[in-house]
């Protein structure tokens, strides 16, 4: 009888810890050995000794934290490559969340657990899609785990933006988007929808866009918004981090139309509160149908939930005969807020 993952994969104050392999996954404080699912700051933190991740994620960490702080030693593992850590076989599989995002698959004495990190099931031109891996325990997020969260097709949301640009040619459309992932996905989708003009960037977005280009994700002409004069930005599309576009920074823009690309935009109150004029429901997280479909795809009898609205998910999983369990991991943030 293979050992149940709860006997070898534990929640500790630093995060999820694989006991036989002696490593943490996305630990919230500095540790000896860490496997990092993806580069968002609530998953990839500075100061670990040894870091294992995809080459893309390691590069993201170096850009965001600086060379010295992204792990004293860094080890890259490609998708599908097997690595033996004290008898625990570790494999990374695409999670479809952002560039480099991976699920961590662990096999120990015939039992298999998968930590998905954050993930989505929708098409994203900037990263490979999620691959379900059958397992005994699947560890999931639950950011949008309420049936009200069904993300509409992203292409329709991008079309809303282009319609608005056509309707208000004298104004600047400024999009609040996470600097890792959402920003590049927005740009790639705009290109796919036929927007060929330069896209202007807040300074915080430029390094990661350059990194995406290095990894072969083509984003078209990008220019800094900060040095452009106001009139050059009339009719243009500008991207910046959500915190900047709704605040002082946006004063440089001509009658800005504040747009926000986030799964939270599904709720009017969320959009209204943030003063958003054009909400776009575009998320890099699984929505409710994707969470339930994934639970079915991985065929796990037991699903652990790291953070989010776990009550509703546990209730719905019970209806599918799956045992849900809340891990209450600390330090995880909501998307885009």
């Amino acid at each position: 009888m293979p050992p149940h993952p709860q006997t070898w994969l534990r929640v500790t104050p630093a995060g999820l810890w694989c006991e036989p392999g002696d490593f943490y996954i996305d630990p919230s404080r500095p540790v000896e050995r860490a496997i990092i699912t993806h580069g968002h700051s609530d998953h990839a933190r500075p100061g670990h000794s040894a870091v294992l991740a995809t080459a893309e994620t390691l590069a993201v960490m170096r850009v965001r934290m600086g060379e010295g702080r992204a792990g004293i030693t860094q080890q890259a593992l490609g998708f599908g490559e097997r690595l033996d850590l004290n008898g625990v076989i570790v494999t990374l599989r695409p999670a479809g969340h952002v560039l480099g995002s991976a699920q961590v698959v662990m096999e120990w004495q015939g039992a298999r657990a998968v930590v998905s990190g954050d993930y989505k099931r929708r098409y994203d031109p900037t990263c490979p899609g999620f691959e379900p891996v059958p397992c005994d325990v699947f560890v999931t997020e639950a950011t949008f785990a309420l049936p009200v969260f069904t993300h509409p097709p992203a292409s329709g949301e991008v079309q809303k933006l282009l319609d608005s640009v056509a309707l208000f040619p004298g104004r600047t459309h400024v999009i609040g988007a996470y600097s890792l992932g959402k920003a590049q996905r927005m740009i790639a989708m705009l290109r796919a929808a036929g927007w060929e003009a330069p896209i202007y960037l807040h300074g915080a977005l430029a390094p990661l866009c350059a990194l995406y280009e290095e990894f072969g994700v083509s984003l078209g002409p990008l220019l800094p918004a900060t040095v452009a004069n106001k009139s050059a930005l009339v009719g243009a599309i500008v991207l910046g981090p959500p915190s900047a576009v709704a605040d002082k920074w946006a004063r440089r823009l001509a009658e800005p139309v504040l747009c926000m690309a986030s799964g939270w935009m599904r709720l009017r109150q969320r959009a209204k509160q943030g003063g958003v004029e054009l909400p776009m429901v575009i998320s890099d997280h699984a929505d409710w149908p994707e969470l339930l479909a994934t639970a079915e795809d991985v065929q796990a009898p037991e699903i652990w939930i790291t953070h989010g609205r776990e009550d509703a998910l546990i209730h719905a999983l019970a209806g599918q005969g799956i045992l849900g369990r809340a891990l209450h991991l600390v330090g995880r943030e909501e998307e885009g807020e």
Partner: peptide, 23 residues
């Protein structure tokens, strides 16, 4: 809808018409 999921959703969204439209 499942009454429990409706209750949790309505509680979260706060507006009846919007909850129904989304659910």
């Amino acid at each position: 809808t499942d009454p429990a999921l409706f209750a949790m959703s309505y509680d979260y969204v706060g507006d009846l018409a919007e909850t129904i439209a989304l659910l």
